[in-house]
Design a protein around this nucleic acid. Structure first.
Length: 249
DNA sequence: GGAGACATGCTGTGGCCGTG
DNA sequence: CACGGCCACAGCATGTCTCC
């Protein structure tokens, strides 16, 4: 009977995987501990109901092999992504996996706070939907005044046309418009004027109507039908090895 | 320097669960 | 029911640290 020293057990598994025994079962179940020598020895093949290596044995051996290979692929995916994180995050060469993840979390937090600081000075879309309408200044003749409206949401193909149509329906004159887009998010900053607005009440109604109109655009933009990840359900999504490797390149 | 303790990582396996 | 994915566990290898 073949015997395998404990220390060489993994090599023995690879030996089996190499196809030496047909359906190479690397299963521990096919090994037994020899009481006398203290070594793992290959167990005799169990006889199936009809004699010889039964079909059930064959199937379970194949399932076991496929299971261990799947687990190996899964670990390779995990480690591949960890390697990608390591490359993307400074000063993580010496860290273990837990340390690496902790450092990545810190790094992301820092990047987010940096982004927030930068967004104070630049028109950068934020992570959260926002809508702000405020009085920007009064016209010279006191019968017109300007309104600054900022508007941030997920980008979608119809958004610009929708916004244009909405603003036109309010009969506003656009003085300036800034549009920025980042990571599927978009931010608009408009400065608009309205004519014939003579008192505080009319101004209030004017800004309110702008706010409501833009709110309706925002609501349409926030509708889940437009979200790129709307196709995700509660199911666990299966990812092919090609998909997973492409993200780490 | 060597032995032992300890931490970390890798691998295979069993079990569970969701999906088709 | 078969399959794939996730998780926990055990066993082992390797590196590092501490103590003698």
């Amino acid at each position: 009977m073949d015997s395998v020293p404990l220390g060489d057990f993994r090599a023995f598994g690879r030996f089996l995987d190499g196809g030496m025994f047909g359906v190479g079962s690397s299963s521990v179940a096919s090994l037994i501990l020899d009481g006398e020598s203290g070594e793992l020895v290959r167990a005799p093949v169990k006889l199936g109901k009809k004699g010889g290596a039964g079909a059930a044995d064959l199937r379970s051996a194949m399932a076991l092999k496929s299971h261990s290979e799947a687990e190996r692929r899964r670990r390779e995916r995990i480690n591949g992504h960890l390697m990608t994180l390591r490359r993307m995050t400074p000063c993580t060469d010496k860290l273990d996996k837990a340390g690496l993840l902790a450092e990545v979390i810190n790094h992301i937090k820092n990047l987010k706070s940096d982004a927030i600081e930068i967004s104070k000075f630049c028109t950068i879309p934020s992570d959260t939907d926002e809508l702000r309408v405020e009085v920007d200044g009064e016209g010279a003749n006191n019968s017109s005044f300007s309104v600054k409206a900022s508007f941030c949401c997920d980008d979608r193909p119809e958004l610009l046309a929708d916004l244009k149509h909405t603003l036109e329906s309010l009969q506003l004159k656009t003085i300036s418009a800034e549009i920025s887009s980042l990571g599927g998010r978009v931010k608009f900053v408009f400065v608009m004027t309205g004519e014939g607005v003579n008192n505080d009440l009319e101004r209030h109604l004017f800004t309110t109507s702008i706010h409501q109109a833009l709110k309706s655009v925002l609501d349409r933009a926030s509708c889940t039908d437009f979200l790129p990840n709307a196709c995700f359900s509660g199911k666990r999504r299966r990812i092919s090895p090609f998909e997973s490797s492409s993200s780490s390149s």
